[in-house]
Simulated assay, not measured.
Amino acid sequence: MSDLTVDDLPEALRPAIEKYRDEAAETRRIPAELLDQLRSAGAFRLTTPRELGGFELPLASVLDVLDRLGRIDGPVAWVVWNLNWGFSAAILPESGMRRIGPDALIANSGQPGRLVADGPGYRLSGRWKIVSGIESADWVALLSIVFDGDQPRMTPAGPDVRICWVPRADVTVLDTWQVTGMRGTNSNTVVAEDVPVPADLVVPFTVTPHIDRPAYRVPLIHLVFPGCAAVLLGMAQAAVDEVAALAAGKVGMDGAPLTGQPRLQAAVGRATAQVGAARLLLLDAARELDRTATAGREATDAQRGLLRGAISFAAESSREVLRTMYEAGSSDPLYESSRLGRIVRDGQAAAQHANLSAAHYELAGRTRLGLPPNALFV
Rank of each mutant, 00 (worst) to 15 (best):
S2A: 15
A12F: 08
E33W: 07
Q37R: 15
E51H: 15
L59D: 06
V62T: 12
D64H: 07
I72L: 14
G74Y: 06
V76Q: 07
V80S: 10
N82M: 11
A90L: 10
R98F: 03
I100T: 08
P102Q: 07
G119R: 03
S125F: 00
R127H: 09
W128A: 02
S132T: 14
G149H: 03
Q151I: 00
Q151R: 12
G158N: 06
R162P: 01
W165I: 09
V179S: 04
V197T: 01
D200T: 01
F205A: 13
H222R: 01
V224F: 00
P226L: 03
L232M: 11
V240S: 02
A247N: 04
A247F: 03
G249H: 12
G255A: 10
P257R: 10
P257C: 09
T259N: 06
L264I: 04
A267P: 00
A271C: 13
T272K: 08
L280V: 10
E298Q: 13
R308M: 14
S312M: 05
F313S: 13
A315F: 04
S318E: 03
R319M: 09
E320C: 01
T324P: 00
E327H: 04
Y335W: 15
E336A: 13
D346M: 10
A349Y: 14
A354F: 13
A358N: 12
A364H: 09
L369F: 05
P372H: 11
L376Y: 10
V378M: 02
